[in-house]
Design a protein around this nucleic acid. Sequence first.
DNA 1: TCAAATTTAGAACAATTGTTCTAAAATATA
DNA 2: TATATTTTAGAACAATTGTTCTAAATTTGA
Lengths: 193, 193
Amino acid sequence: MNTKDKILQAALALYNQEGIRSVTTRHIAAVMGISAGNLHYHFKHTEDIILALFEQLVVAYDQIVQDMAIHTALNMEDLKQCIDSSFRLIEQYRFIFINFVELGSWIPSIRASYQNLVARREQEFLRMFTDMVDDGVFRADIPPAVQKGILRHLFLISDFWISSNELREQLRGDEALAVYRQDVLSIFTPYLK
Amino acid sequence: MNTKDKILQAALALYNQEGIRSVTTRHIAAVMGISAGNLHYHFKHTEDIILALFEQLVVAYDQIVQDMAIHTALNMEDLKQCIDSSFRLIEQYRFIFINFVELGSWIPSIRASYQNLVARREQEFLRMFTDMVDDGVFRADIPPAVQKGILRHLFLISDFWISSNELREQLRGDEALAVYRQDVLSIFTPYLK
DNA sequence: TCAAATTTAGAACAATTGTTCTAAAATATA
DNA sequence: TATATTTTAGAACAATTGTTCTAAATTTGA
């Protein structure tokens, strides 16, 4: 792994652990055992580090979506798989979700990129949804407006569940996953066949 | 209004507009036309300002709950009223909701106070819920576990709707309220009688 | 009205931060 | 091997921040 990637790795770990408020380029360099000058040789500005991490997240998310897209027929088990892997991803990039609004206004391209991601997710999940209607998982009489409403809930909960958890129970690992899965699935339960 | 309250007012406006990252005690003092030294005479530490604002929020929220509690019978209109007034409150203290996790770990008593608030809200809303079951608004066959799940959704959405909106459409004023109301009400629709 | 208490402005401080600069070291290339 | 390029460490800088200190001004209360 080259220095650039090592910086991203160290930065991610620190941001997740300490929060963006208290992490500085000096801290990142220190835990890596390199100089701050060297760090800024690889990433001129702090934002460049954060933006690179955000782009990693987007790439990883698209990978999940793509993995899901290869299924021709979707069942409840696939949905759970999808929920689980997106949770792992959210957990991995915790700090982004915890500081989403702040990052979005600090680094405008993050906000733009997020809106892109939302659009892609919407498309993909609407497709999954209709697939699962066809496969008899969901009721067939759900109006498109309600479907869109379900997706709004889904995205709001998945984007901010980790923040809510941080303020409340602070569950970790598998315990967190179990509750997250339950919280997300319960959006769907009223609409199951 | 005394200087202390004026500081809180100015700080709230600035935090909401500029975000906690870029607002300093010097900025707050500057827009007020007082010296930084004077500001720190009234609030020794920045956290004291933020904590005071958070306490204002909690007091105002409890007022809403209390106003709701005087109703003996609740209908759908009361629920909408409650949603509206809590939205106004959230909007008024935007910065707190946008930086909730960060504030919670920075100022531990905020996190503790939030957990208290959550507990009170849970109590109050469960009561409202059963009232509205009695009044024939909601279905009577909703298991307690599902009721709790609904509340989890409700709180997560109301606490983070403003963050989600900021990243997405950035709706303002009445337009924001209308969408918020719709988003919150749609949690309940599957359970209406 | 006069002393005591409170409030205020503004200078000062120490710490921190992001970033730049310089020169040395390491690495690649020919 | 010799030269060019890349990478590195560490000093340096300018700006900012939260906070403290001091002394003056203002207000309060007897």
